[in-house]
Every structure is written in C-alpha cells, then in structure tokens.
Design a protein around this nucleic acid. Structure first.
Lengths: 372, 372
DNA sequence: TTGTAGGCGTTATCAG
DNA sequence: CTGATAACGCCTACAA
C-alpha cells in the first residue's frame, strides 16, 4: 500500500495545454491503524507516572514544577507527540488566544501592510490572528465580526469609525474589546491619523504653488470615514482660500477607476491640479495623463495620499502624503492587547506629512501660449 | 457613572505636535452587575421550555426540529442574546471551522491578493481564516504552522514546496490536511503554476528580439522554490540558445534592492536586457534606469514576473509574465476544503503567459553610434 | 511540590 | 420529533 507522507496520487491525467489537474486524498491510515485517536493528558500523565494536573502545569506554568518531574513529563509529551486539544483548553481556561481583524480588503496595500505590522506586533505564540475582509460592505462586515467572535476571537481590530451603532452595542454587550485602526476621533479606542489635517497640508502646498483650478478624485465616501475626511478636509482648506473644486469625482478604489475619472475631469474642466484621495487613484490618473499626452507636472499637478510603495515607482515619482501605516498597525496591536488584559490602553493619533516628489509644479500660465 | 457603549475616557492629554495619546479601558460593568456571565444552552433550554439537545439541534440541524418549537427556541436565543461557546463547541464536535494560512509576508502583493481570493472562496460562515507570516524564515514558518494547528486550524495553506521534510511528517502524523499554493510538482496537493515555463516564455521573447547580452535580477533562492525555478528556468532557456547570463544578482524582495542591483549590473556588464524575478524588482530596476538617464526600452529592456498592479503604472508599462494569483488562491481553497472533508481533491497547475507592454525592444546596435 | 476531583458548555447517542 | 445523559480533554481550586 502507498505510504506517501500525507497523501497518495490517485490519478495523473496527461498534461493538457490549459490547466493540469491531479487527484489527491488525505490517506485513511494506510498503515498502522492501532491508535487513530490522539494522545491526551491522561496518556501523558500515565506514561510519565504523574497526575494530569502536573502535566497541565508543565505546559502552562513550568516554574511551578520541579525540574526533575518536568523532564519526565516533557519526555513523555515528546514520545507521545502530544499536543493539547484546542477546544478543551479554550473551554476550561476560558481563553482562546485568538484575535480577529476585519479589513475592507487585503488587495489595498495600505491594509495589507497595516495587518502585517499588526500581526508582527502580537506576542508570538501567545496570539494568532483571524482575518476576514468585508469588501467595503457594512452588512458583510457585521457578519464577519460575528463570525470571528463565534470562532473565539477575544479581541477585534476594525477599520475606521463609520458603522452602525448597534455593532458597537453588540460588541459592548459581549464584552469583546476592540480597536479601531485607520480611525481618529475620541469616542472609541483607536490608532490612526487625521485625514483632514493630512489632506489639508497637501492642498495647502498646491495652493501655495499658485493653483486655483483644482479638481479632486476621491474614493467612495459612503461608510468610509477615511475617504470622507479627505474630501471634506480638502474642501475646507480650499474654502479657506476662497476657492472650491472645479470638479469632484467619487470612484471605487482602483487604478482603472482613477484613470477614467481623470479623463472625464480633464475633458470637462480646465483644471491645473488634481488632488487624489489615495495613491492608487493618483497612479491611475498619472497613467491616464501619460496616455493623453499630458506632461506631469508641467501640464498638470497630480497628488496622492498614503505613500505606499507604488508612489515611488511612478514616473515622475508621486507627490503624496506620508501615513505611517505599519506603525499604526503595531500601535493598534499594542492597544488591543492592553484592553484584552483589562489594562488601561492609550489611543494614538499618528502624524502625517507631505512628501514632495515629482508630480507637483506651479500651474501653467495659460495666457502665454494663447497671447503669443 | 459613565455609560459609554464600550469604554470610558480616562484622560485626554492636551494635543501635542507629534503623537496624541488618550487612555482607554474596557469598562468593568459600570451599570448592571447582576449577570456578568454569558447565557448558555441551559438558559436557553429553560426559557424555551425544551431540552438542551433541542437547542443544539436548532442551531446545527434546524430541519430536524419542527417549526413550532424551533421558533420558541430562536426567540429565547434572541432574548438571551445567546452565542454558543466556541471552546465547548469545538471540544464536543471535534471541529473548529478554522483554516490556517502561512505566507512569507502580506507586504508582497502577490500573497495579499492570493490570500484575499483564498478567503473569499471559503464558504462564508463555515470557515474562518487564521493567518500568520513567516518573513521568509523557515524556522519561523515552522513555529507558525505549529501555532496555527495549536489554535485549532483543521487545514493549512502553505506557500511553495521547499521546506524541511519533517514538517510534512509532522503534519501527516497530526492528520492535518494542507495545500501548497504557488507551488508545482506532483508530490503534494497543490495549486500553482510553472515558474520555469513562465520565465522561459519571457526569455524566449527577449532572445527573439535579438538580445545576447542579458543579465538577471533574481529574488533570494534559498528556501524559495519560486525564485529558484525562475532563475533556473531562465538559465536553461538561455543555454538552449547557447548563451549564458552576463551577470546575475540575487537580492531580497524590494524596490530599493532591485534598483541597487540594476545599478551594479549595468556598471559592470555591457547588457542590453535585464530579466527580473518579479515585478517589484523590475520596478526598482526601471526606476534606477530613469535616474541613471537610461531610456527604456531603447537603451535597455527590462522584464518582470507576476503582473501585479504596479506593472501597469510604471512608465513605460512593464512587460511581464501574467500569473493568475487570485485564481490560484481560490483553487487552493477549493482543494483544501475537499481534503478536509475527506473527499478527493484535484491539484491544479494554472497557465502563465507573457504580457508584452512597453519595456522591451530589440537591442541597440552598439556599433552604430561608434562607427558613425 | 504534587494529586484529587469537579466543572467548563456543547454535541451526540440513545431511548422514548 | 424530543429528552436524558454520557462523553469531549483540559484547567484549577483545594488537599495532601
């Protein structure tokens, strides 16, 4: 009988031009079928000649066991290849060591990086991270939250502040601690930054350059406080200078959508600068500009927000607003752990700053070529 | 006493220029302190006037309970705001509904997208996804695998084939089903594509254009079968044409490392084409080329691999190898579920193809300017 | 320092 | 279709 480590080949269809497939199955105890069940504390205790309590202590509080017996126990554990049963342990100890996180999507680098930092900031071995994505859908987010809690999450990391109040009530009733990342304000525990202040800095820069005909490509603002904060912050800063946008497009996240929005905006408004709600939209706008034969920044200024990797590989490199996403992820992890431990935790508001690269310049003097 | 939904403000230091912090704590039952414990099946059963068995059935096999009693039970559940205890459920049913995944890092868009697709392909509500990242460190990956299994993962998704055989033995012994994503070969259940074939297509294109002085910027090959497959595949294709690389740099994943490698390669070898192991390295190379004043593709051809988003926002847009990362993620999810269910599953090998965009061209005739 | 024994909240196997 | 009741595997006072 086949003895492959974990499975056995059932069939291998001849290689086809398109997609090759091959059948697999978890093998059903091909060889030794004596003990199909796993070792338990009792087995370990018996083999080591101690009580189950001692075995448990060796695992959870080694210092409370004398080295000699501890050695015996550990040897038995190794020999039996014993691993504590997760369910039993969770049931008895009333803790799972699982933390949940719901993000809109990991396809947005901002969240992927933040989550990565979040995960790395969790004490290794002490916590594991359960991740779900909502696709920016509030209803789905709610289901995901409930699913994670149902799977034993003893703490949650959520993105942004905007959500139905009943979600917070539910969480409060269940006594599930949570942290809002990429959020600001002070009505909830959070780790974030000020979107309005960040975009205001950028708009300030554009205004200083002398632009007056400005448009904005914003992400979808519904249920997204980040996008809304940026749009509103930009409007406010413009208003302070007695101006308003010549055009505003609100589009879903994506390079293509950013490109389309740019084309439309340029076609219908005589703008010299386009403020984008994030780097991906800006990258799309930049690509559209290239394809339309517009020079950046000579003909048009384009700015981003987030400063993710792509901001430094566009050509010219993107002028954007730097946001410490990774730092935010780790701060969120720190805060959440403190909340879970019942300790006092600190919400934190991280600073942002404009990174001036190559996509901004003073507006083109429109009268020059015309009056020549 | 404060009655905030889930916490109460303890202190708010005056806003500082750098980082603002604010103290939080999960409030300790500020109001009603009657029942600090959660409702259990017994409570629900009592309130509904049925047995715990019936309550359990209502949750796990509603069709086995007549609508009348089911309604009573559901009403009691709602009223008590009852949620099954995860640990108890896992212990009794011997299943957690948790699937684990270990990836090198979510900061690599390839994995972020694949994982996102993997998660979405999991039946919602039936499974939750536990994620850990290894940082490309085999030792850490092993720890993460054990941690996920210890947290109740009943199936695993791992990246690539390269790892200590004892890991597979351990998994086999524990009877934990697993799927290798971004992997090929046929000794394990996998969902992937052929790195060697993919890169060979690209090298073929470059050779056809007439290049003979070619270099490669590869990702780190140790413990990374994807990078190694690409490097070896390229070497082999070159050898078929009687050529070999004029230079090879093996560098960690990143834009900066790609840029540095390109500078060094160009400085020490008279190459006309640089094959890159992935799009990020290629983007770095492209940026370096721009900064060095080299024209792409007139002066030098640069190619990538993966076709992630950034490939279409570089300037010129990147010629690369398209890999169906999302499709792979969902195929991996499908396969893993079948393995978990004890059913036969199909390994799958997805096709790749060259996407010819703007960074390739015939080599520059070096003798032309010199002989003029 | 170590052992004893009860309980954690569900599910599952039987009868009824 | 529903109800007792015995696992499920581990933790943790409490005793020794």
């Amino acid at each position: 009988m086949a003895q492959a480590p974990s499975g056995s080949v059932l069939a291998k269809p001849s290689a086809c031009c398109e997609i090759e497939r091959q059948a697999w199955r978890l093998n059903e105890d091909a060889g030794l079928s004596e003990r199909t069940t796993h070792a338990t504390v009792d087995d370990v205790a018996a083999l080591a000649g101690v009580s189950t309590a001692t075995v448990s202590r060796c695992l959870n509080a080694p210092e409370r066991v004398i080295p000699a017996t501890r050695e015996k126990v550990m040897a038995a554990i190794r020999k039996l290849n014993y691993t504590p049963n997760f369910g039993a342990r969770a049931l008895a100890s009333r803790k799972t060591g699982i933390i949940g996180a719901v993000v809109p999507t990991l396809e947005n680098a901002v969240f992927a990086h933040g989550i990565e930092a979040f995960e790395q900031a969790l004490p290794p071995g002490k916590f594991a991270l359960l991740i779900a994505s909502s696709g920016y859908d509030p209803q789905r987010e709610r289901e995901q939250i409930e699913a994670l809690v149902a799977r034993g999450a003893s703490g949650l990391m959520l993105v942004g502040f905007d959500r139905d109040p009943t979600v917070y009530e539910w969480l409060g009733h269940r006594r599930v601690p949570y942290v809002l990342a990429w959020a600001s304000g002070d009505s909830q525990p959070h780790a974030g930054f000020d979107n309005e202040a960040g975009i205001a800095q950028m708009v300030g820069l554009v205004l200083e350059l002398g632009h007056t005909d400005i448009a904005m490509i914003s992400g979808m603002t519904e249920g997204n406080d980040r996008a809304r904060g940026r749009l509103e912050g930009a409007r406010r800063e413009l208003a302070r200078a007695g101006l308003e946008f010549r055009g505003v497009a609100e589009v879903p996240y994506g390079i293509e959508t950013g490109a389309r929005a740019f084309e439309k905006l340029i076609a219908s408004h005589p703008v010299t600068a386009v403020i984008c709600g994030n780097d991906v939209l800006a990258a799309g706008a930049l690509r559209a500009a290239h394809r339309m034969g517009l020079r950046v920044p000579e003909d048009v200024t384009i700015t981003g927000f987030d400063d993710i990797d792509i901001a430094s590989i566009t050509y010219p490199e993107l002028t954007t607003v730097r946001v410490p996403h990774r730092r935010m992820g780790s701060e969120a992890a720190r805060l959440l752990q403190q909340l879970i431990d019942g300790k006092e935790g600190q919400s934190v508001q991280l600073p942002t700053r404009v990174v001036a690269r190559g996509t901004h310049a003073p507006p083109r003097r429109k009268d020059l070529p015309a009056s020549a």
